[in-house]
Write a protein that binds this DNA or RNA. Structure first.
Lengths: 333, 333
DNA sequence: CTGAAAGCGCTTACAG
DNA sequence: CTGAAAGCGCTTACAG
C-alpha cells in the first residue's frame, strides 16, 4: 500500500527517518558524513536511503545552510579555447573547496536581458566570476550587495578585478617587429557592441606606440570579423602583393588562416613572412606560432582563489586589482 | 540603530513586512504580482523593498514552490557554433514559459566526475536537456527519477530522445557524389573516448552504403583530429596528387580548410574539386559550402517544448523518439 | 484585499 | 551517539 505523499510525492528525510526508525537529525548526520553516528545506525539509515530511493532536496539544504556551494561564471560568449582553459582552471581550484561552477554565457543580447529579468540566477549562487563584462555599470544593480564578485579582463571599482596588461603585450610585439626590415601589417577585430571586450584595441595601441617610439609605423591595419573566412580573404590580398612582411594578429585565432595561406602560397613563414599572434591558445602551440602568452589558467586560478576567500569572508577590505603580465613567446612563425 | 539581523544579515520578507506595516503574505503577493493587492498598499510595499534593498532568497522560494524555473543543459563540450545555435533555440522557447537555462558543459573528464559527485546540480533544476551523452548508462543513477530529461543526438529507453538521421544524411551525399566522375575521398573524425558522439561514423556509413549501391566506392578515408591544422595538412596531401576529386567531410568544420587550400592552390572549387560538408553551420552558409543541413534549431525547439510538457506533466506516457531528417543543400562547392 | 499560520525539506544547536 | 525542536525565507490555502 503506497503511503500518500505530499506534492511531487518525493521521498524526504522524514520518510527515511521513519523507515530506519531514527530521528531526522540522525539521517541528516549520516547524509553529511558526520562522525558522530554509530556505525550500525549509519548502516540502517544508508539501507533506508537505498531502499526508498531517497535523494536530497538541494533547495531545502541551501535554505537551511545559507549556501549552495555553487559559483556562477558569466562570460560574453562560449566559443573558442579561451573559455575552456579558463573554466578548467577555475574548476580545478573550486573542487578543492567543495564548490562547483555553473556557466552562464551571454551568447546573445536576449541572454543578457533574461539575466536582468530573472536575476534569481545571480542570487542563488555563492559567488560570481564575470569575464569581460562591465559589472559596475551593467550588472551591479541586480546583484545582492553581499554576493562576492570577481571581475576578469575588466576593471571594477566595487569588486576584485583581474586583468592582463594587454597594452604591454602589444608593446612586446612592437619591440620585436621594430627591428624587422619588413612592411608591417595588423589584422585585428573591431568591437561591434557594448558587451564586447576592448582587449584588441589595447593590444593594438601598445603595438603602435612601441613601434613609433622606435621610428617605425604600421603600414596597414585590416579589420576583420572574428571568423576565418574573412581572414583568409585578407591574407590572400596581403600575400598577393607582399611576399615579404610581418603581420601582427591581435589574437592567435586570426593568425591561423594567415599562416595557412602563406604556406599554401609557398612563402617561407618564419623568414620572409613573420606572423605574431596573441593569447597562446592551444592552436598556437600546435602550429608553433610566435605569440604573446596570456596567462589564462593563472587568471582562472587567481579568480577562483580570490572568490573563495571573499566567500569565506577571509578578506573584507577594499577591492583588489591584479594585473598579470603577458610574455612574448618566439616560435616558428 | 541597525537592528540585529540573523545569519548573513540579509533583509527578508519579514523585514519588508514590518517596514511597510503589512503581513508577510501581502509582501509575497506584491512580489509575485498578484492582482489581489490594493494599489496603495502595493506601493507602500514596493517602497519598503526599495528602501531596505530587499532581494528575494531563491532557495526559500524554490523550496516553497517546489520549482526553480530552471533547466540544465548538459553538453559534451562547448566549442563551436553548434551549441550556440542549440542553446539559443532552447532559450527561445524556455523564456516563453518563464524558464531559464543553465549550461553544464563536460569539457573534460573531471567535469563529469564532479557532476557524479555533487549531483546536487542535477537535482536543483526542474528538467534536463542532455546532448550527446548516453544518459541511460552513465547518468540515470544520479538523477531523480522524477526529473524530466530530454536526450539529444543519443538514443534512450527511459527518456524522450531527439535524433537526426545521420545515416540518411550520409546517403544523401552518397547519391549526390555517385554521379560525379571523380575520385572520392572522405575526411572524417574518429571518436577517441566514450563520451564522444558517433555521428561521424553514422554519416560515413550512410555515405559508403549509398555509394556501393550505385557501384561506386570511396577511394580513401582520412581520419583527422577535430582541428584545422591537421586538416590543412591532409588537404595539401590530397591536392598535391589530385587536381580533380570529390571530398565528403563529415562536418562543415573540416570542409573549411580543405576549400581554402584548394582555392589557394588555384583549383576550381565547385567544378574540378567538389566538397560537401555536414551540419550547415553558419560558416557553411557564409562560404556557400554544399552541405547536409542538420536542423539544429529545430532540435532545440523540440527539446525545449518536449521538456516543458514533461515538466507540466502534460505527457505521462512512454518516452517518445523523434528522428529529424536532414537535407542536402547544394551550394557553390 | 489582507493577516496569521502551516508547510516546503533540510540543518543544527540543545538536551539528554 | 541521538531525538525533539527551532529555524532558514518564502508561498498559499484559509478565514475574515
Amino acid at each position: 500500500m503506497a503511503k500518500a505523499r505530499r506534492k511531487y510525492q518525493r521521498v524526504t528525510i522524514k520518510d527515511v527517518a521513519e523507515y530506519a526508525q531514527v530521528g531526522v537529525g540522525t539521517v541528516s548526520r549520516v547524509l553529511n558524513n558526520s562522525p558522530h553516528v554509530d556505525e550500525t545506525t549509519r548502516e540502517r539509515v544508508l539501507e533506508a536511503i537505498k531502499n526508498l530511493g531517497y535523494m536530497p532536496n538541494p533547495h531545502a539544504r541551501r535554505l537551511s545552510t545559507g549556501s549552495s556551494q555553487l559559483v556562477t561564471v558569466i562570460t560574453p560568449e562560449m566559443k573558442g579555447d579561451f573559455y575552456q582553459i579558463l573554466m578548467s582552471s577555475i574548476d580545478e581550484v573550486l573542487v578543492k573547496y567543495g564548490y562547483s561552477s555553473l556557466l552562464y554565457p551571454l551568447y546573445n543580447e536576449k541572454k543578457f536581458e533574461a539575466l536582468k529579468k530573472s536575476s534569481d540566477i545571480l542570487l542563488s549562487t555563492d559567488g560570481l566570476i564575470v569575464d569581460g563584462v562591465n559589472v559596475d555599470s551593467v550588472m551591479s544593480h541586480i546583484l545582492n550587495p553581499q554576493t562576492p564578485v570577481i571581475c576578469l579582463e575588466q576593471d571594477s571599482d566595487k569588486y576584485d578585478s583581474i586583468m592582463v596588461d594587454n597594452y604591454y603585450g602589444g608593446v612586446l610585439v612592437g619591440d620585436y617587429f621594430a627591428d624587422l626590415d619588413m612592411d608591417i601589417f595588423v589584422v585585428t577585430h573591431r568591437k561591434s557592441h557594448e558587451l564586447e571586450s576592448t582587449v584588441f584595441d589595447e593590444r593594438l595601441e601598445g603595438f603602435q606606440e612601441s613601434l613609433e617610439k622606435k621610428g617605425r609605423s604600421i603600414d596597414k591595419i585590416y579589420y576583420v570579423p572574428l571568423d576565418w573566412e574573412s581572414t583568409f580573404e585578407v591574407a590572400r590580398r596581403i600575400f598577393f602583393r607582399f611576399k615579404r612582411c610581418a603581420i601582427f594578429t591581435t589574437t592567435d585565432y586570426l593568425a591561423v588562416p594567415i599562416i595557412e595561406v602563406a604556406r599554401t602560397m609557398q612563402l617561407d613563414v618564419g623568414k620572409d613572412v613573420r606572423v605574431c599572434g596573441f593569447d597562446d591558445l592551444p592552436i598556437a602551440q600546435v602550429l608553433e606560432i610566435t605569440t604573446v602568452r596570456q596567462p589564462i589558467a593563472e587568471m582562472g586560478y587567481l579568480a577562483a582563489e580570490s572568490l573563495i576567500k571573499r566567500i569565506n569572508k577571509k578578506i573584507k577590505d577594499k577591492p583588489k586589482k591584479y594585473i598579470l603580465k603577458p610574455e612574448l613567446v618566439v616560435r616558428n612563425t
